[in-house]
Simulated assay, not measured.
Amino acid sequence: MSTTHHVLILGAGYAGMAAATQLAARTRKADVHVTLVNAQERFTERLRLHLTATGQRVAELDIPPLLERTGAHFVRGWVTAVDAHAKTVRIDDSRVLRYDTLVYGLGSVTDTAAVPGVEEHAYTLDGDATTLSDRLARLGGGTVVVVGSGLTGVEAAAEIAERHPELHVVLVGRQDPGATLSAKARSHLRAALARLGVRVIGGTAVTKVLPDGVELADAQTVAADVVLWTAGTRVSPLAAAAGLTVDDRGRVVTDSTLRSMSHPDVYAIGDAAAIRQGYGVLHGTCQSGMPTGVHAAVSIARTLRGRQPRRFRFGYYHTPVSLGRNDAVVQFTRPDDSPRRGCLTGRAAVWYKETVSASPWPTYRRMTTMPSSGVFWPRGGRFTRLRGDAR
């Protein structure tokens, strides 16, 4: 009878890739089989989807090469079901994969179901960023409405306006752009949008997406040739269907070590997890996602050595926002993500953002060669070391 311990990691986003590479490195000499499952072979850099959407080239990162010489195995397939009782996962080609420990990191996608017309008439930055790029290139003129005034919407609106000055860009959202930033950072952000010619309609919601525009809460209609939807996210219903305890958004509720509250052989990471810290529940970002993946890997490695996993602790450090290719703002934050007084703007912010948000490839490569006594991972723009007692 095999004594191999099978760890199955679902989702190869920032968190899942971090979990796979680090766990494989930490269990290289143990009888542990690490398998990473993802729907496609290409690694999606979500931080750069606004570049893809405007026809700019980004690095081509494929998952199998990222996993070379790590000891982790890759399986391509859509996850269609999780059986938490039988400890199996079914993928779309009818294969059934079994596990002893599951790392659930299926992430989130843009919520296109909450408002009528989004599915039929709007683009998102999830799977059709390239399609949006082609559409924008063919327009030649007209109006693009970006719905969602959060940071994703701001970055997308600025990028489109800069890349396509022939287009009229309108940014619509419930909040004013940069509402969570300090006064100085917010002022710079809004000035940059004005310089790029982006019209801002704040303090209102889109209630319906039409074939030729959007309808606002006050019944006003804004005409559009293209609508880009960035307002809100949703997670896969698979966790709830599997019987895992989830919150009202469908995210797996974890204990302080990132284990599922209802199924301790399941860890949840990244956007798919409802991870509570002293200041509240983490919101999904690369900044917090990669540390959750690393922590899950460290916890699993500790457990396999007969030790107890440690409590996950995380504090935010910054909020970088690109405003086209030649401008940006970086808001430094307190651990609870509230703004500090300090911020960077202009070229200094561009340099900073490109440095700390660089391709994750070198980071994953570093993880494959780290000694088991410690690991570094990007935490809010810095590299943070886990002490040797984290083994």
Rank of each mutant, 00 (worst) to 15 (best):
S2C: 01
A12D: 11
Y14C: 11
H33S: 15
T35I: 07
L36I: 03
H50N: 13
A59T: 05
D62R: 14
L66G: 04
V75T: 15
R90V: 10
D92Q: 09
R98K: 14
T101L: 05
V109T: 15
T124S: 15
L125A: 13
T130E: 13
T131P: 02
D134P: 00
V144N: 11
L151A: 03
G153I: 03
A157K: 08
A158T: 03
E159F: 05
I160A: 13
P177K: 03
A185P: 01
H188P: 03
K208C: 11
P211R: 11
G213T: 09
V214N: 00
E215D: 01
A219T: 07
W229C: 06
W229H: 10
A231E: 09
R234E: 01
V235Y: 06
P237A: 14
D247N: 12
T254W: 04
H263D: 07
D271F: 10
D271W: 12
G293Y: 03
S299L: 02
G306P: 02
R310Q: 10
F312A: 10
G315K: 08
D327N: 01
T333F: 05
R334Q: 15
A348F: 03
W351V: 04
R366T: 06
M367D: 04
G381N: 04
R391T: 15
R391Q: 14
